[in-house]
């Protein structure tokens, strides 16, 4: 009975041995939630550093302390340093520089670039923008027709909803150089007073050098306002490799002293992963860039803002 009182008043210093097993459990939990292994490692290292040597009350549970610290670290990674107000950026460029704002959608095959480009287009239409969609995937069968259908759908949606926005397709068919088409699209948009150019590109594997060079060329030639990396929530550890190699290719193949890098992320197929939302963390950690939008389905309205709280919940919850 006496010792019970003693314990209450005494303090304990956190040692690595106390923390390690808890961290290990938490790490495996995060891996199961589809966070890339590397990133779980970095997280647990930093938490170890932050907590070793700290004094805690005897009855505080190490688990709670570690979880709280983990939650903070995750929130920090998910909270971008750069602003994410795309609309404001567009308005700014339109007004002050009197030119269209351009976004290039890049990523590996089949992640949802074209579909989410169309969703962004719908969002911009709702915000009264005049948009040019540039069909710069000149490789994959049906890629041009896919965009044509979207532009047609969006146009009739606009009519039905009485939106003042307007959208047109700029295409030159298949087999042509995508960088040149993007350039022509942007200058067409400028001459015809479009507010935004959305550039669709072909999917490509991050290790495919010729295709990565072609992408770097498109970026260098057109210096778009935003390079948007489209990544799917389904992807596992590859997320890290994809993003770092897209960035590296943009750097290595640009020939520029100050090369462009990925500016933001669209995280797609979020509706297919339940609580396994770890890709959100992997992607933001690797780039330090914000998730601009989350794709949550296959219709035009399935585009949401990232809800950091709910990501943390899904990652750490049972």
């Amino acid at each position: 009975f006496l010792s019970y009182f003693q314990n209450l008043t005494s303090q304990r210093v956190l040692k690595e041995e106390d923390l390690a097993p808890v961290l290990e459990t938490l790490r495996n939990h995060l891996i199961d939630r589809n966070v890339a292994v590397d990133i779980t490692g970095v997280l647990s290292e930093s938490i170890l550093k932050a907590l070793v040597g700290k004094k805690i009350g005897t009855f505080s549970r190490v688990h709670t302390i570690v979880s709280t610290q983990m939650e903070q670290s995750i929130k920090k990674i998910l909270t971008p340093s750069t602003a994410t107000d795309v609309l404001r950026d567009i308005n700014f460029v339109n007004k002050t520089e009197n030119r269209p704002y351009s976004l290039v959608f890049v990523g590996v095959n089949g992640v949802g670039k074209s579909t989410n480009l169309s969703k962004v287009c719908f969002w911009l239409l709702q915000n009264k923008k005049k948009i040019l969609v540039a069909a710069c995937d000149t490789f994959r069968s049906g890629a041009v027709e896919q965009l044509r259908v979207h532009v047609r759908n969006l146009t009739s949606l606009c009519e039905n909803l009485n939106l003042v926005g307007k959208v047109e397709l700029f295409e030159k068919g298949y087999g042509k150089d995508s960088a040149t088409i993007a350039r022509d699209a942007i200058s067409f948009a400028k001459n015809n007073e479009f507010d935004v150019v959305l550039v669709d590109t072909a999917g490509r594997m991050q290790d495919n050098e010729p295709l990565m060079r072609a992408l770097a060329k498109l970026v260098t030639m057109n210096d778009p306002d935003k390079i948007v990396f489209v990544g799917e929530a389904l992807v596992g550890n590859e997320a890290v490799d994809q993003l770092s190699k897209f960035n590296r290719a943009l750097k290595d193949f640009s020939g520029l002293e100050r090369p462009r890098q990925i500016d933001g992320i669209i995280l797609t197929k979020f509706d297919t992963v339940d609580e396994k939302v770890g890709a959100a963390l992997s992607m933001t950690y690797v780039t330090g860039k914000p998730v601009l939008f989350v794709g949550t389905g296959q219709t035009y309205t399935d585009l949401k803002k990232l809800n950091i709280k709910s990501i943390v919940c899904s990652l750490l919850g049972q």
Binding site: S141, G142, E145, V149
Partner: peptide
Amino acid sequence: TFRAGAFDQLKQN
């Protein structure tokens, strides 16, 4: 019949 351009894709291939 859902994905935009799906038939064109298959047709071209």
